[in-house]
């Protein structure tokens, strides 16, 4: 009996940590991850559990007599579908619709499935967004095709370099560099009209919007460690984009 209780508790811990890991890797807010993990723990009768979530690792202490567990988070990207799916599973676990084993199995499936849109569609979406922003920010219709193409190309370059090197800062720098040089090329060739709006529109898909919002919300919720580190990540990204564009403009 005691042995069965032990394995069950181990399974519960695995389940909570996996949920937290998936959510952090997909770009959820820190306070939501802690909230989800504590709710799941309470539903499994672990009343005085604590967890500490940072963008690079999650610690979870179930109670005084059980050992604390730790999981490392290596890569983070934005995949809101996963956040929503884990959230749904945890809701169903808390409401008693799923048993612990079922919930753990579903988490494993979520962890191993790739939910992202195909890369071509993402590039197309980035290109459409660039075109829309060009017009919204006051650009002329004659620049629309250039913003469309440059925005899509830059997004594609960033994704490709990310897959190859896993260095986000470098990928964004090269993407911004490509935007700057392509836009200048278009202007020098006499095809485009306004360099500034083409660059701003094309840069928009690279802007770290999720990081900025998450950083602020974490800071306001009192999670200073993760708020500050996400803010630093957002600042680095913005700096990489700025440096890439500035390098082109300075010639």
């Amino acid at each position: 009996m005691n042995q069965a209780g032990e394995t069950r508790r181990e399974l519960a811990l695995d389940c909570f940590l996996l949920a937290g890991k998936i959510m952090m890797e997909s770009g959820a807010e820190t306070y939501r991850i802690e909230d989800t993990m504590i709710r799941m723990a309470v539903s499994q009768k672990m009343m005085d559990s604590h967890c500490f979530v940072t963008p690079t690792g999650i610690m979870f202490s179930p109670s005084n007599e059980l050992a604390t567990r730790f999981v490392r988070i290596n890569s983070r990207r934005t995949d809101l579908e996963r956040v929503a799916l884990v959230n749904a599973v945890s809701r169903r676990l808390v409401s008693g619709e799923l048993t612990l084993q079922q919930a753990y199995d579903e988490m494993l499936i979520i962890d191993q499935t790739d939910y992202m849109f195909p890369l071509q569609i993402q590039v197309l979406a980035a290109a459409v967004a660039s075109g829309c922003f060009l017009i919204l920010l006051g650009g002329g219709w004659e620049d629309l095709p250039f913003a469309f193409i440059i925005g899509g190309t830059a997004f594609y370059i960033v994704e490709m370099i990310l897959i190859q090197t896993r260095v986000k800062f470098f990928a964004e720098f090269v993407g911004a560099l490509a935007i700057g040089s392509l836009a200048s090329l278009v202007i020098y060739a006499g095809l485009g009209q306004d360099l500034d709006t083409i660059i701003i529109g094309s840069v928009m898909p690279l802007v770290p919007g999720l990081l900025i919002t998450n950083a602020v919300r974490d800071l306001m919720a009192g999670h200073f460690v993760s708020g500050l580190s996400k803010g630093a990540e957002a600042f680095l990204t913005a700096f990489a984009i700025g440096a890439g564009i500035a390098l082109v403009l300075s010639f």
Binding site: T78, R82, A84, A125, A126, V128, A129, C132, L136, G209
Partner: peptide, 21 residues
């Protein structure tokens, strides 16, 4: 026009961030 473009832009960002379909 602005309403349509901002709708399209936000939807496109939804695709980039992979929000549930």
């Amino acid at each position: 026009l602005e309403a349509f473009l901002s709708f399209l832009a936000a939807g496109a960002f939804g695709v980039v961030f992979n929000t549930p379909r």
